[in-house]
Design a protein around this nucleic acid. Structure first.
Length: 574
DNA sequence: GCCGTTTTCGGCCCGACTGTTTTCAGTCG
């Protein structure tokens, strides 16, 4: 069993946690975190990295040697011995909010606590009160934290954060004391999952704003309530952090709290290189504060073009900024239509006409309907008779619409051998086909990659659906070599979708820069199973923007006429 | 542990809040 990048990254991450527990030098700890991060977004195979001479920033000689050992032997002596120093389960304790390495160390050394269960029992029996630095309040918070960790595992799907965030923004907007406000944090950066909601407000009267915030009816619990920073938990379990600053500080605060941490670190060192200091309150030359009234101005002061929030991950944005420039990113308004929607013919909850009307309400010119194929019996997959019936209904509806068209599609299962789910004459009856894997995930990486590439090579395949099969926060991707899949898609003129359903957001944005450079075309598809599902396109746009995609990279920015001729030319039978 | 167009040694981002203290450590972002 060979090690993949994610597993390797997790091991480096765990080493960092263990070193923290040991009380190691914080910079050494940070180096391991940095190595883990580098591995996660590595643009080559692990074997290539450890065998080659290419240097990668963030992985020095020591980490490289450990990584090589891991890749070659499947084991790392250093990690194993470090792990042996602590009982299994101790690391779980650090997932509890407000429990860091120092407190965890005390808990396990003095009370021999090595699991969430142990900790819960100890709290219930008031055992923590005897420890230095622990009091009743801490114990109470830990008990709450254990529940929180068990229930939510700390992260949330972007839709679960986006909806309440909009509610709080509108609420705060109505306050006369609020001068400016914005979403910040990972939600503004449109990450695929988020830990909490961050909002920044500029005001001259922070107390009034904070009071209104913590007293909002959706607030379940107040975690912190200060003059410039407050933090609450909502009934749904998600946290919101609110920061207030003065109008003078606002642009700097928005930049700071939008992050990412890694992006900010680079920005700070750029400032430092110029003899300046950057923090959430301003850019300083000695005591002198340099004025900036927008994020654009701050970037300008550091000789950078404006970097949109979605790109601020220290992933590619600084090299883009200093090379070809920051691309003008695709927006929701650029989408003229969309593909991948289910109806009551299979497992959707709305009829063909209802789905089409919902798309029209969004201002779209076309909708590609793709119910499930016959093998997906669990989802009511369509047999040949159903398909004929659906096509007749679509023809009639299209007759009745002005300037709107339903495209006839199918989400064909990719069978275990890589073939599509109907005989050729049936495949030929569709305007387009999305090929997706829905079963038999337990193949090896090579087998799965070959299976999907075979489907890509089928001339009837127009798009590849949710290419990795991941379900965020619940199911990992099946093993697959996405670089090979992307290369095959490009070679065969197949579109790889950005599945915009918040549970999937698949293809991962970290692959999009590679795909774009190679010339891959994508389509932002909601995978809608209801009329509301069409609204999920916005989350797919966020992913496209994180990947640096522009209008020309996205099929469904084409007008009805252009997309119709594209599909016609692409169809092997026409 | 990582990094370097002044550097192979000496730095490594920085501030707010809580809970415990009695002036501050730990945690978080």
């Amino acid at each position: 069993m060979s090690i993949d990048k994610k597993q390797a990254a997790n091991i480096f991450e765990e080493i960092a946690r263990l070193l923290e527990l040991k009380g190691a030098n914080q910079f050494r700890t940070r180096a391991y975190v940095g190595a883990a991060r580098t591995l996660r977004s590595l643009d080559m195979e692990l074997e290539e990295l450890v065998d080659g001479n290419e240097k990668v920033k963030g992985i020095g000689a020591s980490s490289m040697e450990k990584l090589r050992e891991l890749v070659k032997t499947g084991k790392m002596e250093y990690y194993e011995s470090l792990k042996a120093e602590f009982p299994e389960g101790v690391l779980d304790l650090m997932k509890i909010p407000r429990l860091g390495p120092k407190k965890v160390k005390v808990l396990y050394q003095q009370l021999n606590i090595t699991s969430l269960d142990d900790l819960e029992k100890a709290c219930e029996q008031d055992e923590l009160l005897s420890l230095d630095g622990f009091g009743a309040k801490t114990q109470e918070n830990i008990l709450k934290g254990i529940k929180h960790v068990r229930q939510y595992k700390g992260r949330h799907l972007v839709r679960a954060a986006h909806v309440p965030a909009q509610e709080f923004l509108s609420h705060l907007q109505t306050l006369p004391e609020v001068l400016e406000l914005d979403l910040a944090g990972s939600l503004r950066r449109r990450k695929e999952t988020v830990k909490d909601i961050d909002i920044v407000v500029s005001t001259e009267e922070p107390k009034a704003v904070m009071n209104a915030f913590v007293n909002h009816p959706l607030v379940h619990e107040i975690i912190a309530h200060g003059d410039t920073k407050s933090s609450v938990t909502l009934d749904s379990g998600i946290n919101i952090d609110l920061r207030t600053v003065t109008p003078e500080q606002y642009a700097y605060a928005l930049l700071h709290f939008t992050g990412s941490k890694e992006h900010n670190t680079v920005m700070r060192s750029r400032a430092k290189d110029k003899g300046l200091k950057l923090n959430e309150y301003g850019l300083f030359r000695g005591e002198e504060r340099i004025h900036a009234s927008s994020e654009e101005e701050i970037y300008g002061l550091l000789d950078l073009p404006f970097i949109p929030p979605e790109l601020r991950e220290d992933h590619a944005e600084f090299s883009l900024a200093e090379g070809d420039g920051i691309p003008s990113l695709v927006t929701l308004e650029d989408l003229k239509g969309t593909f991948h929607a289910h109806t009551t013919y299979s497992d959707g909850s709305a009829s063909l006409d209802e789905m089409a009307q919902a798309a029209m309400l969004q201002g779209l010119e076309y909708l590609g309907i793709t119910d499930h194929s016959q093998t997906a019996y669990y989802a009511g997959g369509l047999n040949v008779y159903d398909i004929e019936k659906q096509h007749k209904e679509i023809d009639a509806l299209n007759e009745s619409y002005d300037n709107f068209r339903i495209f006839k599609g199918i989400e064909s299962d990719i069978l275990a051998d890589g073939s599509l789910d109907y005989p050729e004459p049936v495949l030929a009856s569709f305007d387009f086909i999305i090929a997706s894997v829905h079963s038999q995930f337990n193949l090896t990486k090579d087998e799965m990659t070959q299976r999907i590439i075979k489907a890509i090579e089928n001339p009837y395949t127009t798009m590849l659906g949710h290419p990795t099969g991941r379900l965020l926060l619940s199911r990992e991707s099946y093993p697959i070599d996405m670089h090979k899949v992307i290369d095959a898609a490009i070679a065969n003129g197949v579109i790889v979708e950005i599945n915009a359903n918040p549970h999937r957001l698949d293809i991962d944005w970290r692959l999009l820069q590679y795909a774009k450079e190679k010339g891959m075309l994508t389509s932002i598809n909601p995978d809608a199973h209801s009329t509301e599902g069409i609204n999920d396109m916005i989350y797919g746009v966020g992913i496209a923007r994180k990947g640096g995609l522009q209008v020309g990279d996205v099929l469904n920015t084409l007008s009805l006429q252009d997309v119709a001729s594209y599909l016609d030319e692409r169809h092997p039978g026409r």
